[in-house]
Design a protein around this nucleic acid. Structure first.
Lengths: 364, 364
DNA sequence: CTGAAAGCGCTTACAG
DNA sequence: CTGAAAGCGCTTACAG
């Protein structure tokens, strides 16, 4: 049904006047002409306006079909409706965490007619700034800032500045998987209780009888490491256990460095009966180190992760971990983005999943 | 630096004439006026055109800064350049496979000034059709159709139709992680050799001494199940092994059904010494069934997966699997999308990763 | 180097 | 129910 060669566009054979090249092949005027109506009427048909005679509508629709016409959303958007895209800005597009969050967002974006843009910053501030500018240029309807970010005043200022500049184009900024700015209510958020998740891990271990509980996590300064470490400290405090800095290991979020860090702990002579890991990835590294040292899990050492990524239930032993409601957080964030008038701070509860990697501490 | 209240826009205090509401707060005219130049000149500044006096440029830039102005990309795009977005159309946003492919695409899209749209179809044809329409409306620069699709003539026709209609807006359609249409060269593709991957698995098993090799895969009709099953059959044939339909189990791509399917095989009395699984997820299910039946891996039964998702190297035993170059496939697809003049069919090689789940078959 | 004007493709009061 | 016209915010030949 495609017609690629339709005759002289304006009726006038020549026109030396300015004007850029056409983008799409066929436009509203072409359709209107073919249907024998004015562009205004044709426009009404595509806008789904009611006041159009059925027969007219038919003629326009079939003309459009014959010409392969589809509205130019760019032009249309200039008149008000905007383009209905939502941006998902994340540090890296990595793993199931990202995928689950994005899927949650998408589940709400699509039915409401929004398209999802995925943008990565790779942690570069300049890139984030540039991105916000591009997103403003494109008149994005909403921007979700996803995941862990710097946990300092500089970030807060930047975020507030982004929110303001995005407000110029009527786009809300919403945090997704990171907490609200401290002392600033204006940027809404959808998050899960990271500290609470780790506290529930400590509760679990203490109830099993553990008292020397180590923590393996990332460097401070980002929201996720900071919140999870606080959860550990709060958990200890809740049970009257003293915080011992020697029991806190710092690593990056990869198996190998985590394995190395735990290996060092094991050789240090510092004793512990349980390892609370900031993430499942770190927990896997920890398990490798324990296996290498022939320390049996959980008989000699319990191990807990966080994130409940796929497959960790199939490890040997199956990993006890915290399951965060990533998908639901994505859903909540999208809902805030869609109706900013209900904006606020959503905090969902993660769930402790007890499996085989935790047990009673060895009788010493 | 934001000025939210700038005075009367046109100079004329009243105007009863038509015209929709303004979208962004401040436009080119505002900036030009403030800088004391014509809109044309201001436009040149933002377009980065050369022929503008440095001092003029300065004035315009600082006026823009003071007003918090950013070009309206929608309006700009009507004059030719288009919006520079690339669409990534996938069935589901699931897991690391999707994330790795998308990351590969993004790695090329961003540096070239493209934003990435992620669209899911959930396997619904109607949704795909609608999506293509929306993407046409928005004048997307390129569309990547990602992953397994129906493997039939109806799909081929649909895809060709999409390609044609996308051509109207000058957007190439490129397949990503699925092979070219048989008998049609016009839609370019970036893929990895799925059949070859499974063949290398069979080679590996045969070299270990296996002769009764079973296959556990998804229902036929989609490209990925079809290609991987063919790889199995070709692998057998290459070694002169007979294809035995009783050794082919059908399941869906989840652990539980896979476990059930393998459990049934074990009870059926049909003998086999190795299980080639279509995916790692299926392999995990298979391993569960074997564990439940107390059949030791690999001593009594070898197991192989496909996809090399994270963590399968940490299972007990570590899973032998095929590592597909997802990221690189994404990169290749993006490159085709960016310069369709070099379009063609890229086929990358997956890599067999031998780990602990495969070994010699039991004697007897 | 700069400006006036026409145009990109659509929408929407206004007036039948 | 339908059309003529003005406008959305920008760009680009054309003419200084």
């Amino acid at each position: 049904m495609h017609v690629s060669d339709h005759e002289d566009r304006d009726g006038s054979a020549t026109r030396a006047r300015p004007g850029p090249a056409r983008i799409g092949s066929v436009n509203l005027r072409d359709v209107a002409k073919r249907a024998g109506v004015s562009p205004a009427t044709a426009s009404r048909v595509f806008a789904g306006a009611k006041g159009v005679q059925a027969s007219t509508r038919e003629r326009v629709l079939s003309a459009a079909d014959e010409l392969g016409y589809v509205v130019n959303g760019l032009a249309r958007s200039m008149t008000g409706r905007g383009l209905r895209t939502m941006a998902f800005v994340v540090r890296e597009m990595i793993g199931p965490t990202f995928a689950a969050l994005a899927a949650g967002v998408e589940s709400r974006a699509t039915p409401n007619g929004y398209l999802l843009m995925i943008c990565t910053t790779h942690g570069a501030r300049a890139r984030a700034r540039e991105l916000v500018k591009t997103l403003r240029e494109q008149r994005t309807a909403a921007v979700l800032l996803v995941g862990s970010t710097e946990n300092d005043d500089a970030f807060a200022e930047t975020a507030l500045e982004y929110a303001r500049s995005l407000a110029d184009i009527d786009a809300p900024l919403v945090f997704c998987g990171r907490p609200p700015l401290t002392g600033h209510d204006e940027i809404p958020s959808a998050d899960y209780d990271q500290g609470g998740g780790v506290r529930s891990v400590v509760d679990h271990l203490v109830s099993l009888g553990h008292r020397r509980i180590a923590y393996v996590g990332g460097a401070p300064g980002m929201t996720t490491p900071d919140l999870r470490l606080s959860g550990y400290r709060d958990g200890l405090a809740a049970h009257g256990l003293e915080f011992d800095p020697r029991l806190v290991l710092e690593t990056t979020n990869y198996e190998d460095p985590a394995e190395a860090a735990v290996g060092k702990l094991l050789q240090s002579g510092v004793t512990a009966t349980a390892l609370v890991c900031m993430t499942d990835v770190i927990a896997i590294g920890a398990m490798r180190a324990l296996r290498a040292a022939r320390i049996s899990i959980p008989d000699m050492m319990s191990v807990v992760g966080f994130d409940d990524v796929p497959m960790v239930g199939d490890l040997t032993p199956a990993l006890t971990t915290v399951h965060p409601p990533f998908y639901e957080v994505g859903v909540a964030a999208a809902e805030i983005a869609l109706s900013p008038e209900h904006a606020g701070h959503v905090l969902l509860e993660p769930r402790l999943v007890v499996r085989g990697s935790t047990g009673a501490p060895p009788l010493s």
